[in-house]
């Protein structure tokens, strides 16, 4: 019994020594920093860096499902550049990103300015603004697909019975219409993010500045251009960068809404890369296609961040 207790004591002491050693180790700033960084770095390496490097490697090989393939140099890339559907998808992606971002910015700004006023139930309205953003894209895209459905479209039904149209509108069955519908859904989904972020930016602008401008003789429009817009520009640029990245690499919305059709008219780089890489099993070609997004996004981010930095210094 006595011996057992002695052994227990010994264990306890050993434990204490170990604990204090660990404590001492963590008290060193370098060790602590490494310990705190490790999980984040691990996640980045496993889920971002490793797939990215693998994609780089795959894009240089002829790998397909069931066949490891061999090194083919830049063949996949030259093939992509000569691929008419890819050219179409690239143009679509630029079009989709450009217009969706413009609409999201304009409408988001308008909404933010409205929400920045004081009115009854302000908080509830502000919170409900975020709904489109928090509903999973796949679900909301399905809902939109039903609303655009050639046969069951509630919008066609309403317009027809309202006496506004006599023929059904080809929401998703005409190429041009389908692209604009995709832009609309993306705008609907992304606008709250713009609105809420810009609203947060608006709230940092001191009301004194607007009062000073009003005394200086500026009307609402002048106040917007001379006070609100310039002071909001840094926030605006950050939101736009985020939005461009997300929209340019969008996949879910198109995949659910149109699947890239009709006749590839709504294919984006991401959906086309998926179709080739996963759908057809041509992993190497798919990887090469998806990598075409990278230089474009990199350029956009670089230009905008540089502008941001210059503005902060100047």
């Amino acid at each position: 019994m006595g011996r057992g207790r002695a052994r227990q004591d010994l264990h306890l002491r050993a434990e204490q020594v170990r604990v204090s050693r660990l404590t001492r180790l963590l008290e060193s700033e370098k060790a602590l920093a490494a310990a705190l960084l490790a999980p984040g770095v691990a996640i980045l390496v496993i889920f971002i860096a490793y797939p990215f490097v693998m994609a780089l490697w795959y894009s240089l090989t002829s790998i397909r499902v069931g066949d490891p393939g061999h090194f083919v140099g830049l063949d996949n890339f030259t093939k992509a550049l000569n691929d008419l559907i890819f050219q179409q998808a690239f143009k679509n992606t630029v079009f989709y990103t450009f217009w969706a971002t413009i609409f999201k910015l304009a409408l988001g700004m308008w909404l933010a300015l409205l929400l920045n006023r004081s009115f009854r139930f302000k908080r509830i309205v502000r919170a409900s603004m975020l709904l489109p953003f928090i509903i999973p894209t796949v679900l909301s895209a399905f809902a939109w697909r039903w609303m655009f459905d050639p046969t069951f479209s509630v919008m066609n039904w309403a317009l027809y019975h309202g006496g506004i149209i006599t023929d059904r509108l080809p929401f998703l069955s005409s190429g041009d219409w389908a692209m604009w519908c995709a832009v609309l859904v993306n705008t609907w989904r992304g606008m709250p993010f713009f609105a809420i972020t810009l609203l947060a930016g608006l709230q940092t602008i001191s009301p004194d500045l607007h009062e000073a401008a009003a005394l200086d003789g500026a009307n609402a429009w002048h106040r917007f251009w001379n006070v609100t817009w310039p002071l909001l520009l840094p926030v605006t640029l950050v939101v736009v960068v985020f939005s461009v990245i997300q929209t340019f690499s969008d996949f879910q919305l198109i995949y659910v809404l149109t699947g890239g059709g009709p006749a590839n008219s709504t294919h984006l780089i991401a959906t086309y890369a998926y179709q080739i890489g996963v759908g057809s099993g041509l992993l190497g070609e798919g990887a090469a296609l998806s990598l075409f997004m990278f230089p474009v996004l990199f350029a956009v981010v670089w230009v905008q961040l540089r502008y941001l930095k210059r503005m902060e210094n100047g």
């Binding site: 001191s206 004194d208 009062e211 000073a212 001379n226 006070v227």
Partner: peptide, 9 residues
């Protein structure tokens, strides 16, 4: 008017 926190642009 001159404001308390100056309100300079």
């Amino acid at each position: 008017m001159v404001f308390q926190n100056y309100a300079l642009y």
